[in-house]
Design a protein around this nucleic acid. Structure first.
Lengths: 130, 130
DNA sequence: CAATCCTCTGAACAGATGTTCAGTGGTAAC
DNA sequence: GTTACCACTGAACATCTGTTCAGAGGATTG
């Protein structure tokens, strides 16, 4: 009964990290939540995905592609960026499978990869409108 | 800053000027798509939102909060970060209204702001599982 | 073949991001 | 009151991001 802190337990001892934390945390809560925390790998993958969407230029590119397939130079004109910059950004979008591409003659045509993205878009738009 | 290249001449750039010189880009496509491109402000806001989700530590924090309300020191223990770092990250999540918080005694309890986020989460998880 | 176009790539640089450290404010316990 | 704790903040620093520039790879045209 040393500490009068809490309903059922508590005490120190880091949950499984031997390092830093020796302060009094609510151990029961931490223990309950910790196994449900996203694994580092999944968190990483998901962060990279969101990262691909975290740039206004890339979002503009996607909104353009949501209309129709376009080649790089048209995309550049549509969003008013340099072609090299567009190419760099499309690389990012490709790496997360947000866009597809196919070569036709000298041009490479890009399009949206699937519909998850539009669903996502609407969900976020809704959140931002609140 | 400057409006991009102008090294050679002509080329891109005139998209919304009614010049009849369609030398290099597929003007019709560009004209068709351009008005549908996300505005800079909306793209910016949306990018900031996704940006808040683009860090593995913040995603871990959210996944912890998806389980239950937690105070900062518990969160820090659950995701194994320093409390200061957690505080900084929570600030980002707050700025995008991803979390709520309330003070109770010495602690500040954080929770998920709404259900859009879990919907988003599932949508992305699904996308990544393909 | 040479010339031209479209796209991609790597390097370099400016700006943004995330961590740690040190210090502050507010609340509860002594 | 003093002390201890929890959370927030600002500064400094290392790292990551995105742009531009210069040039290379592929494909078409004359």
């Amino acid at each position: 009964m040393a500490n009068s802190r809490s309903t059922e337990n508590s005490t120190i001892q880091a949950v499984d990290a031997p390092s830093c934390d020796e302060s009094l945390v609510h151990l029961d809560n931490v223990r309950q939540v910790q196994p449900e925390v996203l694994s580092t790998e999944k968190a990483q993958r998901m962060a990279e995905f969101f990262s691909a969407l975290s740039d206004p230029h890339r979002l503009k590119l996607l909104s353009a592609l949501a209309q129709q397939e376009l080649c790089v130079c048209d995309l550049a004109a549509a969003v008013k960026m340099g072609e090299s910059a567009v190419s760099h950004q499309l690389r990012v979008l490709r790496s997360q499978r947000l866009v597809t591409y196919r070569r036709q003659g000298r041009n490479v045509y890009y399009g949206l990869a699937d519909d998850h993205i539009m669903t996502l878009y609407r969900e976020v738009a809704q959140h931002l409108d609140e």
